[in-house]
Amino acid sequence: MAIDTHTVRRIAFLSRLKIEEEKIESTKEEFSKILNWIEELNEVNTDDVEPLISVNNTTLRMRDDEVTAGNCRAEILKNAPAAEYDYFAVPKVVE
């Protein structure tokens, strides 16, 4: 499958990846190669086959409704680039 530069820019934006302008063309080529390789799978007939969710044939394990974690604000905020008044502080986001 051929991919265009518009799609490359769109995917980069969605993934919050910065791709330098001069790299767009080469990224496009790389993307296309990967997609072409994956497209080999299209040769297999998958009509009426449900998508595979997991290769681990396990059932879902559930937990009891108990409070077992939390009260570790200092550790939680330790990695924050900025924290003020016990909040994470981020550049103003107003939609």
Binding site: D65, E66, A69, G70, N71, E75, I76
Partner: peptide, 26 residues
């Protein structure tokens, strides 16, 4: 519920900021 849907953090409303946060929630 007492705890969160995918972690053992408390669901209590109105507590001080970021006290009911587990490593999963963060």
């Amino acid at each position: 519920s007492k705890s969160k849907i995918f972690s053992g953090g408390s669901t209590e409303f109105g507590d001080e900021p970021n006290v009911n946060v587990s490593f999963v929630d963060a």
